[in-house]
């Protein structure tokens, strides 16, 4: 399997980078978030001729905010609403804003913080990131 390149970007270059992807004719594959102890990582994956390339954005763990890319890729609104609902990341300017009601959840923002993680089973130590 070919490794997928991940490019690290910053908050102020996000929109420009995404726009460049759009102009290159890339398809938006997914937007995903990962909660790390002190930050939230957003991964924007794009496909060009079946080659995957990703943009990686690191946000501070407390009150993360990010501009919406749904002005560039219209379909991103679902991913962004999902990230808002699960990770408590404020996304500004979504094309369709469900205002936290995309998913009907029993727990608000299940990935919202690392303060109350589910206890891992067995002898596995609590999550300690290596990166």
């Amino acid at each position: 399997m070919n490794p997928e390149p991940i490019e690290l970007i910053t908050l102020d270059t996000l929109l420009d980078k995404v726009r460049a992807k759009r102009e290159a004719g890339c398809r938006l594959v997914q937007v995903s978030a990962t909660r790390l102890p002190d930050q939230v990582e957003l991964t924007y994956s794009f496909d060009l001729n079946s080659r995957l390339a990703s943009l990686r954005l690191s946000l501070p763990g407390a009150a993360p905010r990010v501009p919406s890319i749904s002005g560039i890729y219209g379909c991103a609104f679902l991913y962004e609403n999902e990230i808002h609902d699960l990770f408590n990341v404020q996304v500004d300017g979504m094309a369709v804003d469900f205002k936290g009601n995309l998913y009907k959840l029993a727990v608000r923002f299940p990935f919202g913080s690392t303060q109350a993680p589910c206890a891992p089973t067995g002898a596995a130590p609590a999550a300690t990131p290596t990166q």
């Binding site: 995903s32 990962t34 909660r35 790390l36 891992p120 089973t121 067995g122 002898a123 596995a124 130590p125 999550a127 300690t128 990131p129 290596t130 990166q131």
Partner: peptide, 9 residues
């Protein structure tokens, strides 16, 4: 993953 039994994400 971070080398534990459970996936990080």
């Amino acid at each position: 993953a971070n080398g534990t039994k459970n996936l990080q994400r």
